[in-house]
Protein backbone atom coordinates (compact mmCIF):
# COMPACT_ATOMS: atom_id res chain seq x y z
CA UNK A 1 0.00 0.00 0.00
CA UNK A 2 3.00 2.27 0.37
CA UNK A 3 2.94 2.98 -3.31
CA UNK A 4 -0.60 4.26 -2.90
CA UNK A 5 0.43 6.58 -0.09
CA UNK A 6 3.32 7.92 -2.13
CA UNK A 7 1.20 8.54 -5.16
CA UNK A 8 -1.57 10.16 -3.12
CA UNK A 9 0.89 12.57 -1.56
CA UNK A 10 2.28 13.49 -4.96
CA UNK A 11 -1.13 14.17 -6.41
CA UNK A 12 -2.22 16.12 -3.35
CA UNK A 13 0.88 18.27 -3.44
CA UNK A 14 0.41 19.03 -7.10
CA UNK A 15 -3.23 19.92 -6.70
CA UNK A 16 -2.61 22.23 -3.77
CA UNK A 17 0.50 23.80 -5.25
CA UNK A 18 -1.22 24.56 -8.53
CA UNK A 19 -4.25 25.81 -6.57
CA UNK A 20 -6.51 23.50 -8.51
CA UNK A 21 -8.17 22.67 -5.22
CA UNK A 22 -8.61 24.47 -1.93
CA UNK A 23 -8.40 21.37 0.19
CA UNK A 24 -7.57 17.69 0.06
CA UNK A 25 -9.53 15.26 2.19
CA UNK A 26 -7.82 12.00 2.97
CA UNK A 27 -6.60 9.86 5.83
CA UNK A 28 -3.86 10.28 8.36
CA UNK A 29 -2.70 7.88 11.05
CA UNK A 30 -4.43 8.34 14.36
CA UNK A 31 -2.81 8.84 17.75
CA UNK A 32 -3.22 5.21 18.75
CA UNK A 33 -1.85 2.35 16.67
CA UNK A 34 -4.21 0.67 14.24
CA UNK A 35 -6.35 3.70 13.64
CA UNK A 36 -6.59 5.89 10.59
CA UNK A 37 -8.71 9.00 10.64
CA UNK A 38 -9.95 11.53 8.13
CA UNK A 39 -7.94 14.67 7.64
CA UNK A 40 -8.40 17.81 5.63
CA UNK A 41 -5.26 19.57 4.47
CA UNK A 42 -4.98 22.96 2.87
CA UNK A 43 -1.25 23.38 2.36
CA UNK A 44 1.09 21.25 0.28
CA UNK A 45 3.41 20.87 3.23
CA UNK A 46 0.74 18.90 5.05
CA UNK A 47 0.56 16.39 2.20
CA UNK A 48 3.08 14.24 4.04
CA UNK A 49 0.41 13.51 6.63
CA UNK A 50 -1.64 11.58 4.11
CA UNK A 51 -1.61 7.79 4.25
CA UNK A 52 -3.56 4.97 2.78
CA UNK A 53 -3.72 1.46 4.17
CA UNK A 54 -6.21 -1.25 5.08
CA UNK A 55 -7.48 0.74 8.02
CA UNK A 56 -8.95 3.54 5.90
CA UNK A 57 -12.43 2.09 5.98
CA UNK A 58 -14.30 5.28 6.67
CA UNK A 59 -16.26 6.67 3.80
CA UNK A 60 -14.91 10.09 2.93
CA UNK A 61 -17.99 10.89 0.89
CA UNK A 62 -19.37 12.02 4.22
CA UNK A 63 -17.05 15.04 4.20
CA UNK A 64 -17.66 16.47 0.78
CA UNK A 65 -21.25 17.71 0.95
CA UNK A 66 -21.86 21.35 0.02
CA UNK A 67 -18.13 22.20 0.06
CA UNK A 68 -16.70 25.69 0.13
CA UNK A 69 -14.51 25.95 -2.93
CA UNK A 70 -13.07 23.01 -4.78
CA UNK A 71 -11.94 19.94 -2.92
CA UNK A 72 -10.02 16.82 -3.72
CA UNK A 73 -10.92 13.61 -1.98
CA UNK A 74 -9.51 10.11 -1.73
CA UNK A 75 -12.00 7.49 -2.92
CA UNK A 76 -12.05 3.73 -2.74
CA UNK A 77 -14.55 1.88 -4.94
CA UNK A 78 -17.41 2.22 -2.49
CA UNK A 79 -16.57 5.84 -1.62
CA UNK A 80 -16.60 6.76 -5.29
CA UNK A 81 -20.05 5.24 -5.65
CA UNK A 82 -21.27 7.39 -2.80
CA UNK A 83 -19.75 10.37 -4.53
CA UNK A 84 -21.76 9.50 -7.62
CA UNK A 85 -24.79 9.42 -5.33
CA UNK A 86 -23.92 12.81 -3.97
CA UNK A 87 -23.63 14.34 -7.40
CA UNK A 88 -26.94 12.76 -8.45
CA UNK A 89 -28.59 14.03 -5.29
CA UNK A 90 -27.19 17.54 -5.65
CA UNK A 91 -25.03 17.39 -2.53
CA UNK A 92 -21.92 18.42 -4.44
CA UNK A 93 -21.24 19.72 -7.93
CA UNK A 94 -19.03 17.46 -9.97
CA UNK A 95 -16.91 20.44 -11.05
CA UNK A 96 -16.09 21.27 -7.43
CA UNK A 97 -14.86 17.79 -6.80
CA UNK A 98 -11.53 16.21 -7.71
CA UNK A 99 -11.55 12.51 -7.05
CA UNK A 100 -8.30 10.72 -6.34
CA UNK A 101 -9.24 7.12 -6.92
CA UNK A 102 -7.69 4.28 -5.00
CA UNK A 103 -8.16 0.74 -6.30
CA UNK A 104 -8.96 -1.16 -3.13
CA UNK A 105 -7.95 -4.59 -1.86
CA UNK A 106 -10.42 -4.51 0.97
CA UNK A 107 -10.31 -3.15 4.46
CA UNK A 108 -9.39 -4.92 7.66
CA UNK A 109 -11.95 -5.81 10.26
CA UNK A 110 -10.24 -4.50 13.38
CA UNK A 111 -12.50 -6.10 15.92
CA UNK A 112 -11.92 -9.52 14.40
CA UNK A 113 -8.22 -9.01 14.41
CA UNK A 114 -8.33 -7.85 18.00
CA UNK A 115 -9.80 -11.20 18.98
CA UNK A 116 -6.64 -12.92 17.73
CA UNK A 117 -4.30 -10.74 19.71
CA UNK A 118 -3.72 -10.64 23.43
CA UNK A 119 -2.77 -7.47 25.16
CA UNK A 120 -2.40 -3.99 23.82
CA UNK A 121 -1.30 -3.45 20.27
CA UNK A 122 1.69 -1.12 20.22
CA UNK A 123 2.42 -0.94 16.53
CA UNK A 124 0.85 -1.82 13.24
CA UNK A 125 2.22 -2.12 9.78
CA UNK A 126 1.33 -3.84 6.60
CA UNK A 127 3.23 -5.06 3.62
CA UNK A 128 1.31 -6.20 0.61
CA UNK A 129 -1.28 -8.64 1.85
CA UNK A 130 0.48 -9.24 5.18
CA UNK A 131 -0.40 -7.45 8.38
CA UNK A 132 2.23 -7.00 11.07
CA UNK A 133 1.09 -6.39 14.59
CA UNK A 134 3.32 -5.66 17.54
CA UNK A 135 2.20 -6.34 21.07
CA UNK A 136 4.05 -6.88 24.34
CA UNK A 137 4.59 -10.46 23.21
CA UNK A 138 6.38 -9.41 20.05
CA UNK A 139 5.51 -9.16 16.38
CA UNK A 140 2.75 -11.25 14.86
CA UNK A 141 1.88 -11.55 11.20
CA UNK A 142 -1.51 -12.25 9.69
CA UNK A 143 -2.82 -12.72 6.21
CA UNK A 144 -5.04 -9.75 5.42
CA UNK A 145 -7.33 -11.95 3.37
CA UNK A 146 -8.46 -13.70 6.56
CA UNK A 147 -9.48 -10.49 8.28
CA UNK A 148 -11.36 -8.60 5.60
CA UNK A 149 -14.45 -6.71 6.62
CA UNK A 150 -17.66 -8.54 5.70
CA UNK A 151 -18.70 -5.96 3.15
CA UNK A 152 -15.26 -6.02 1.53
CA UNK A 153 -15.52 -9.76 1.08
CA UNK A 154 -18.69 -9.19 -0.96
CA UNK A 155 -17.46 -6.13 -2.80
CA UNK A 156 -17.64 -6.25 -6.58
CA UNK A 157 -16.64 -2.68 -7.24
CA UNK A 158 -13.20 -2.31 -5.73
CA UNK A 159 -12.09 0.10 -8.43
CA UNK A 160 -13.44 3.64 -8.25
CA UNK A 161 -16.29 4.13 -10.70
CA UNK A 162 -15.41 7.78 -11.25
CA UNK A 163 -12.07 9.46 -10.68
CA UNK A 164 -9.91 12.32 -11.91
CA UNK A 165 -6.63 10.79 -10.76
CA UNK A 166 -5.71 7.25 -9.89
CA UNK A 167 -3.27 6.32 -7.17
CA UNK A 168 -2.56 2.91 -8.64
CA UNK A 169 -3.42 0.41 -11.32
CA UNK A 170 -6.91 -1.09 -11.28
CA UNK A 171 -7.32 -4.28 -9.27
CA UNK A 172 -9.10 -7.37 -10.49
CA UNK A 173 -12.69 -7.41 -9.33
CA UNK A 174 -13.82 -10.36 -7.24
CA UNK A 175 -16.03 -12.94 -8.87
CA UNK A 176 -18.59 -14.14 -6.39
CA UNK A 177 -20.54 -17.30 -6.81
CA UNK A 178 -23.54 -15.93 -4.97
CA UNK A 179 -23.20 -12.31 -3.96
CA UNK A 180 -26.34 -12.51 -1.84
CA UNK A 181 -25.68 -15.75 -0.01
CA UNK A 182 -25.91 -13.91 3.34
CA UNK A 183 -29.34 -12.50 2.50
CA UNK A 184 -30.58 -15.78 1.11
CA UNK A 185 -29.62 -17.48 4.32
CA UNK A 186 -31.87 -15.20 6.34
CA UNK A 187 -34.63 -15.36 3.77
CA UNK A 188 -34.71 -19.11 4.17
CA UNK A 189 -35.30 -18.83 7.91
CA UNK A 190 -38.68 -19.22 9.53
CA UNK A 191 -40.63 -16.15 10.51
CA UNK A 192 -39.85 -16.77 14.16
CA UNK A 193 -36.15 -17.30 13.54
CA UNK A 194 -35.95 -14.05 11.62
CA UNK A 195 -37.80 -12.33 14.37
CA UNK A 196 -35.37 -13.64 16.98
CA UNK A 197 -32.37 -12.79 14.83
CA UNK A 198 -33.36 -9.16 14.52
CA UNK A 199 -34.44 -8.97 18.12
CA UNK A 200 -30.96 -10.08 19.17
CA UNK A 201 -29.42 -7.77 16.64
CA UNK A 202 -30.99 -4.57 17.91
CA UNK A 203 -31.24 -5.31 21.60
CA UNK A 204 -27.88 -3.71 22.39
CA UNK A 205 -28.56 -0.55 20.44
CA UNK A 206 -28.02 2.52 22.57
CA UNK A 207 -29.40 4.84 19.92
CA UNK A 208 -26.22 6.84 19.67
CA UNK A 209 -26.94 7.28 15.93
CA UNK A 210 -23.28 6.65 15.07
CA UNK A 211 -24.43 4.47 12.16
CA UNK A 212 -26.56 7.29 10.87
CA UNK A 213 -23.86 9.89 11.30
CA UNK A 214 -21.22 7.76 9.61
CA UNK A 215 -23.48 7.03 6.66
CA UNK A 216 -22.85 9.26 3.67
CA UNK A 217 -26.49 8.81 2.64
CA UNK A 218 -27.90 10.41 5.79
CA UNK A 219 -27.95 14.13 5.26
CA UNK A 220 -31.48 15.28 6.07
CA UNK A 221 -31.56 18.54 8.00
CA UNK A 222 -33.99 16.92 10.44
CA UNK A 223 -33.94 13.16 10.86
CA UNK A 224 -37.32 11.46 11.13
CA UNK A 225 -36.49 10.31 14.66
CA UNK A 226 -36.18 13.96 15.66
CA UNK A 227 -39.48 15.05 14.16
CA UNK A 228 -41.80 16.54 16.71
CA UNK A 229 -45.08 17.28 15.00
CA UNK A 230 -46.16 14.67 15.79
CA UNK A 231 -43.39 12.87 17.56
CA UNK A 232 -44.31 9.47 16.27
CA UNK A 233 -41.08 7.67 17.08
CA UNK A 234 -40.13 7.76 20.72
CA UNK A 235 -36.59 8.68 21.68
CA UNK A 236 -36.23 6.02 24.31
CA UNK A 237 -34.65 2.63 24.05
CA UNK A 238 -38.10 1.10 23.81
CA UNK A 239 -37.74 -1.88 21.49
CA UNK A 240 -40.40 -0.72 19.06
CA UNK A 241 -38.79 2.68 18.75
CA UNK A 242 -35.36 1.15 18.24
CA UNK A 243 -36.69 -1.18 15.57
CA UNK A 244 -38.56 1.63 13.87
CA UNK A 245 -35.37 3.65 13.73
CA UNK A 246 -33.36 0.82 12.21
CA UNK A 247 -36.07 -0.12 9.81
CA UNK A 248 -36.67 3.33 8.42
CA UNK A 249 -33.00 4.24 8.37
CA UNK A 250 -32.39 1.20 6.21
CA UNK A 251 -35.39 1.99 4.07
CA UNK A 252 -34.09 5.47 3.37
CA UNK A 253 -30.99 3.80 1.94
CA UNK A 254 -32.93 1.63 -0.48
CA UNK A 255 -31.42 1.84 -3.93
CA UNK A 256 -28.72 4.18 -2.62
CA UNK A 257 -26.64 2.04 -0.27
CA UNK A 258 -23.23 1.06 -1.68
CA UNK A 259 -22.48 -1.38 1.14
CA UNK A 260 -19.46 0.68 2.19
CA UNK A 261 -19.79 -0.63 5.72
CA UNK A 262 -19.37 2.76 7.39
CA UNK A 263 -22.38 2.08 9.60
CA UNK A 264 -20.96 -1.16 10.97
CA UNK A 265 -17.52 0.37 11.30
CA UNK A 266 -18.96 3.19 13.37
CA UNK A 267 -21.15 1.15 15.68
CA UNK A 268 -19.73 1.06 19.20
CA UNK A 269 -21.94 -1.92 20.08
CA UNK A 270 -20.83 -4.01 17.11
CA UNK A 271 -24.33 -4.29 15.70
CA UNK A 272 -24.32 -5.62 12.19
CA UNK A 273 -26.80 -3.11 10.74
CA UNK A 274 -25.91 -4.34 7.26
CA UNK A 275 -28.36 -7.14 7.95
CA UNK A 276 -31.04 -4.59 7.09
CA UNK A 277 -29.44 -2.83 4.17
CA UNK A 278 -28.19 -5.96 2.42
CA UNK A 279 -31.75 -7.11 1.85
CA UNK A 280 -32.60 -3.86 0.07
CA UNK A 281 -29.46 -4.08 -2.03
CA UNK A 282 -30.55 -7.50 -3.16
CA UNK A 283 -34.11 -6.39 -3.88
CA UNK A 284 -32.97 -3.36 -5.86
CA UNK A 285 -30.72 -5.59 -7.89
CA UNK A 286 -33.32 -8.24 -8.53
CA UNK A 287 -36.29 -5.98 -9.19
CA UNK A 288 -34.64 -3.17 -11.07
CA UNK A 289 -31.23 -4.55 -12.06
CA UNK A 290 -29.90 -1.64 -10.05
CA UNK A 291 -26.66 -1.18 -8.17
CA UNK A 292 -26.23 2.13 -6.42
CA UNK A 293 -23.75 4.77 -7.48
CA UNK A 294 -22.53 3.34 -10.77
CA UNK A 295 -24.01 5.85 -13.16
CA UNK A 296 -23.79 9.58 -12.64
CA UNK A 297 -26.59 10.23 -15.12
CA UNK A 298 -29.23 8.05 -13.51
CA UNK A 299 -31.38 8.46 -10.46
CA UNK A 300 -32.04 5.51 -8.17
CA UNK A 301 -35.10 3.46 -9.18
CA UNK A 302 -37.25 4.52 -6.23
CA UNK A 303 -36.77 8.16 -7.25
CA UNK A 304 -38.43 7.81 -10.57
CA UNK A 305 -41.92 7.08 -11.66
CA UNK A 306 -42.15 4.45 -14.35
CA UNK A 307 -45.41 2.73 -15.24
CA UNK A 308 -43.40 -0.35 -16.23
CA UNK A 309 -42.02 -0.89 -12.74
CA UNK A 310 -42.73 -4.30 -11.26
CA UNK A 311 -46.02 -4.19 -9.37
CA UNK A 312 -44.55 -5.50 -6.18
CA UNK A 313 -41.82 -2.84 -6.06
CA UNK A 314 -43.78 -0.95 -3.47
CA UNK A 315 -43.42 -3.91 -1.17
Amino acid sequence: MDTYTKKIREIAKDLLASQKVDRVIGFEMGTIPMAARPVSIESENDAEKLVFNSLCAMNLANYIRKPKGTIAVIAKGCDSRNMVNHVVEHQVDRENLVIIGVPCHGMVDKSQLALEVEGEITAYDEEGQTLKITTAQGELTFEKQDFLKDNCRLCQHRNPVIHDYMAGDPVTEQELEDPFADVNEIEAMSQEAKSTLFEDLTKNCIRCYACRNACPLCFCPTCFVDESSPQWVGKSQNKTDVDTFHFLRAFHCAGRCTDCGACVEACPMDIDVRKFTRKLIKDSYEMFGWEAGLDISKRPPLDTFNPADPDDFIM
Binding site: V88, E89, H90, Q91, C220, P221, R299, D303, F305
Partner: peptide, 29 residues
Protein backbone atom coordinates in the same frame (compact mmCIF):
# COMPACT_ATOMS: atom_id res chain seq x y z
CA UNK B 1 -37.29 24.94 2.85
CA UNK B 2 -35.39 24.70 6.13
CA UNK B 3 -35.73 20.95 6.06
CA UNK B 4 -35.14 20.43 2.36
CA UNK B 5 -31.87 18.63 1.71
CA UNK B 6 -31.82 19.39 -2.04
CA UNK B 7 -31.66 15.71 -2.94
CA UNK B 8 -34.07 16.25 -5.84
CA UNK B 9 -36.16 13.13 -5.32
CA UNK B 10 -39.37 15.15 -5.55
CA UNK B 11 -38.29 16.73 -8.83
CA UNK B 12 -37.43 13.34 -10.25
CA UNK B 13 -40.56 11.56 -9.09
CA UNK B 14 -43.32 14.09 -9.77
CA UNK B 15 -45.41 13.02 -12.77
CA UNK B 16 -46.57 16.64 -13.27
CA UNK B 17 -43.18 18.43 -13.06
CA UNK B 18 -44.47 20.61 -10.24
CA UNK B 19 -41.32 20.76 -8.07
CA UNK B 20 -38.14 22.46 -9.22
CA UNK B 21 -35.02 23.93 -7.65
CA UNK B 22 -35.11 27.59 -6.75
CA UNK B 23 -32.55 29.62 -8.62
CA UNK B 24 -32.28 32.63 -6.39
CA UNK B 25 -32.96 34.01 -2.96
CA UNK B 26 -32.26 32.71 0.47
CA UNK B 27 -33.26 29.17 -0.37
CA UNK B 28 -31.51 28.88 -3.73
CA UNK B 29 -30.72 25.26 -4.41
Amino acid sequence: FENCCSCGVCISICPYSAPDFQNEGRFAG
